[in-house]
């Protein structure tokens, strides 16, 4: 059974597509990698295992393996991170609830900065090429990952997408995760920084309702500030909750629609490349 989508076979699994490509290749289904075997090698601990093997009556052997369940994801995330560092690629993992404006922030950022900085984009969604098509019209290299029924991106599928993107040195890679404020928090993709986006319409207590995502992020973008006059949301209260979860969080208050506040975000991006 597939762990990402829960399907019985491989045919429903994640796919990686460029805009214009057709959905016929399933060979990237991400738990088929040879890499798995290699990544477990250094945890074999022959001596350790044997030292603890005590035989029971019916040949029962107890293996004290103490192995991290997400180790495979972490190993491949480290591989991605090394690749990004070597090529001076500033990689951002953009996470949020569905509809908070990730793609709109991306569109605005890319249109405004594409003449200054080379950008690459990986889009994660359960279905459709819609987001990749929105980026593609800006003439930015983009790959769409469709996770099928999966609720988050994992480092191995990002690795496959990165290979396909052929990213140039000294650029910015935007990885737009699946819209979901719970599951993606556990899966390191190898990003340089994690950016959580929350919109003003979502209520000010969201950071403590979904603390894991805010705890693991470096940057918090508060989007749709142009709507504040029409809402009861208290932005200071929202920031207070977010800082309670993660005191190191750095904020940008923006409106992707009007462009308000985007300059500070752009300056931060430029400083980091």
């Amino acid at each position: 059974m597939c762990g990402t989508c829960g399907c019985g076979s491989d045919t429903n699994g994640p796919t990686i597509l460029k805009p214009g490509e057709h959905n016929h290749s399933h060979d990237v289904h991400h738990h088929n990698h040879d890499g798995h075997t290699h990544s477990h090698e250094h945890h074999t601990h022959e001596d350790h295992t044997h030292a603890h093997n005590h035989s029971h009556n019916h040949k029962h052997k107890v293996l004290e393996i103490e192995q991290d369940i997400l180790q495979n994801n972490q190993v491949l995330a480290a591989r991605n991170r090394g690749y990004f560092e070597a090529k001076n690629i500033f990689a951002l993992n953009l996470v949020s609830s569905p509809g908070s404006g990730k793609t709109s922030i991306l569109e605005r950022t890319l249109s405004d900065l594409k003449n200054e900085i080379p950008f690459y984009v990986i889009e994660g969604d359960q279905q459709t090429l819609n987001d990749a098509n929105r980026i593609d019209v800006l003439n930015i290299p983009v790959i769409q990952i469709n996770t099928g029924k999966g609720c988050h991106l994992e480092s191995d599928i990002v690795y496959e997408a990165v290979k396909k993107l052929e990213i140039k040195n000294n650029s910015i890679l935007m990885i737009e995760n699946v819209g979901n404020l719970v599951c993606p928090s556990m899966f390191d993709l190898g990003e340089s920084k994690r950016v959580v986006i929350i919109s003003t319409t979502e209520g000010d207590d969201k950071p403590i309702k979904y603390p894991d995502m805010f705890h693991t992020s470096d940057i918090c973008i508060i989007n749709k500030i142009d709507l504040l006059p029409y809402l009861n949301t208290d932005i200071e209260k929202l920031k207070g909750y977010a800082l309670q979860v993660n005191p190191k969080l750095q904020f940008f208050e923006v409106s992707a629609t009007t462009g308000e506040g985007m300059e500070a975000w752009y300056n931060w991006l430029k400083e980091n490349i």
């Binding site: 762990g3 738990h31 997400l70 609720c151 599951c183």
Partner: peptide, 12 residues
């Protein structure tokens, strides 16, 4: 994501 977690356990 618990399904991914269990599949990780199965793999191990």
């Amino acid at each position: 994501h618990e399904l991914s977690i269990v599949m990780g356990i199965v793999k191990i």
